[in-house]
Every structure is written in C-alpha cells, then in structure tokens.
Design a protein around this nucleic acid. Structure first.
Lengths: 186, 186
DNA sequence: ATAAACATACCGTCTGGACGGTTTTATGTC
DNA sequence: GACATAAAACCGTCCAGACGGTATGTTTAT
C-alpha cells in the first residue's frame, strides 16, 4: 500500500510530472530508456497509474509532443508581441526563444522535442505541419533567404548544444545572436 | 537451410551489408527498430552470423559510427583538396558535402549519423571529439564568426531535411548554397 | 587440419499492456 | 449537513512477445 492512494489527488500534477520525467529520461539516457516502468517509477506512480493517464505508450509520446509544442507556441507568441519591427519578426522570436529561455530548464525542453522527433518517425509529420503552419502565418515577413538561413543556423546551434559539441563561450554566443538578429532584419 | 551457408563467403561484404541495413532501418523506421533480429534478417544473415561480426549490439552501433565518420572524413578531405582558397576551406567543404553528395544514397548517410548520435548518448562524446579534432586542424582558417554560422546553418538544413520539414525547392536550395559559400569567404 | 564464417536452438530479462481491485473525490438528494 | 452513488484516480499482478546474448553445431576456405 503506497502513498499515492492516500495523498490528495492531483491528476493534472501527476500527468505533468509523468511528461517531465519522460522528457528528462529521454534527454539524459536516450529515448530507448523511456519505458513505462522507468517513467512511472521515476514519477512515483505505478505503471497502472501511468496507463490511466495515457492509455498506451504512443499517447504518452504524443502528449509530450503536444505539451512541448504548446509551450513553444506560447513562448514564440510572447516574443513576437514585443517586437515592433515586422520584417523577420517570427525569425527573431525563433532565435530568441532558443537563446534566452525563460527558465533554466526550459532550454532543455526544445532539445527533448528534437530527440523525440528524431527517434519517433511518426511525430515527424506533425512537426512538419507545425512548421508549415507557422511559416504560412508569417509568409509576408519571414520568407526571405536570410530569414531561412537564420532559422537553420538556430536549429544547428540547438543541435550542437544537444550533442554537447565543443562549447562556445558566452561571448561568442552573444556575438552569434547579434549577428543572427542583424541578418533577420535583412 | 538458407543460402548463406552455400554461397561464396565474403565476410567483408556481409559486414558492410549489415551496417548498411542498420543505417537504413534506423533512418526509415526509427532507431528503436534497429534490433539484432531485424538487422540480421534484412541483411540475409542469421542472428548468429551478425553476432559473429559484431559481438554485441554496442559494437554494431560503434561500427556504424566509425564507418560513417570515416566516409565523412574522406569526403571532406577530397573537397578541401580541391579548394584553392584557404580561408573557410573546411566550412565550405562541410557545406558542399551536405549539398552535393556524390551518390544518391550517400546523402542519407549523414542523416543516419545524426539519428545515431541523438538516440545513443554514449556516441555523443565520440562525436564531440571528432568535431573538436577537425576544428583544431582548421583553427587558422575556419574559426571566424560567419564560418561558425555557416556550419550551424548547414546542420540546421541537414536536420530539417531529416525531419522532412517543408521542402525548399531546388532553386532556393541553390541560392542558399551560394549564400553560405559567400559567407564562408568572409 | 584448422580456423573463419556462418546457422540453429535456446535462455533470462525486459517491455507494453490487459485486468480486476481499492481508495478518493465529485455530485446529487433529502 | 448527512448520506448514497457514481466516476475518477490510482495500485498490483500477470502475461505474451520481443529482445540481447550464449552455446553449440555445421559448412567453407586455406
């Protein structure tokens, strides 16, 4: 008889906890380590409990994807709202969200997204649609060559970070951000 | 009684076949589908046969990594040899190798590398070393800001390609390459 | 003859998930 | 506010299949 039975029920918190644990595991020990046993145990819930929130593993991964893209959407929207210059607005938000995550651990979340995307081919199509939607929404302001270039560079930096590639110091990083922002204005 | 028993033995060819099959599986059906059973069967070899060449799964993945980086090394060296302009030489080779793979299927190999790198955390350190070595070898010619930017952009494009992101047409692609090459010269 | 290059059979463990039970919470009724 | 009732939120157990790996045999090349 464990504690969860008797603690105050907070289904939404448990659900969130499960997603966070899955994300952390995927990032630190690779996507193969994201098993129902490992996730439920690390989240302090039985496997039955996990399967109550997510009827199968696929829905767990889908939930993770949905959660992450939602957060990404919010972060992007906030950045774009604060940007008075129309041209390249989406691209700058894209760069800023990666470079200056609000919380410390939030930066890792985008990495998790990448890992999930690569290890679960069935998510790729949904990512494609997400990207397509945002590009369509900002076709007037962010479809010039250098904007595309900047977004690619951000993705690359993101990937390098994820792979723990040779670290570039804070100074170089700031210079890079400045360069990217400059390119995004034309 | 299958054929392998009776065909002429070509250990090196079988080994190569196993690596290719593993790469293909990883790319098309995700890294989780790379099982000893699946790989050996798709390669037309028994599991015992596979385990003869690679004593365990880890050594199979390591072999794949080694094979891919070796090919990458060769492709880069060739490009660099043909480039008379010193500044940004490595960066241009890096870009060219991705944009113009010699064979059709060779382009996919770099994608496989990325997938492997992300799904197998233990390979990340080796990749870090690979990258570090190449950067050190070309520190005089390829360490300026825009060179870094270009390589990041190439990685991003590579990733977008891998994820099947909204396709950019051949025209835009050519323009992008031209832009990257220009940036690599200063 | 010997070693390399395979094949076949088998084992222990892990994994996803089905299932039935138990406890907590929300809701409605009086 | 007491009480019944249903639904939601869990737990614990079990299972069939998949997986990595071992052990041992058989064929082929030298």
């Amino acid at each position: 008889m464990s504690k969860a039975h008797h603690r105050r029920k907070q289904p939404e918190a448990v659900r969130q906890q499960l997603l966070e644990v899955a994300a952390k595991l995927s990032l630190e020990k690779g996507p193969a380590s994201v098993t129902l046993d490992a996730v439920s145990q690390a989240a302090g819930v039985s496997k039955g409990g996990l399967l109550h929130h997510f009827p199968n593993k696929l829905s767990l991964l889908d939930g993770l994807f949905a959660d992450l893209t939602e957060k990404l959407d919010r972060a992007l929207a906030e950045r774009m709202r604060e940007d008075p210059h129309p041209k390249g607005r989406f691209t700058r938000a894209y760069a800023a969200v990666f470079f200056q995550p609000e919380g410390l651990q939030d930066g890792d979340q985008w990495k998790v997204l990448t890992v999930a995307l690569i290890s679960e081919p069935h998510l790729r199509e949904r990512w494609r649609q997400w990207m397509e939607r945002h590009l369509a929404e900002n076709v007037g302001t962010d479809s010039f060559l250098d904007a595309l270039l900047v977004r690619y560079a951000v993705d690359g930096l993101w990937l390098a970070d994820l792979l723990g590639a040779p670290v570039i110091d804070a100074e170089a990083r700031a210079a890079m951000l400045a360069r990217l922002l400059a390119l995004s204005r034309s």
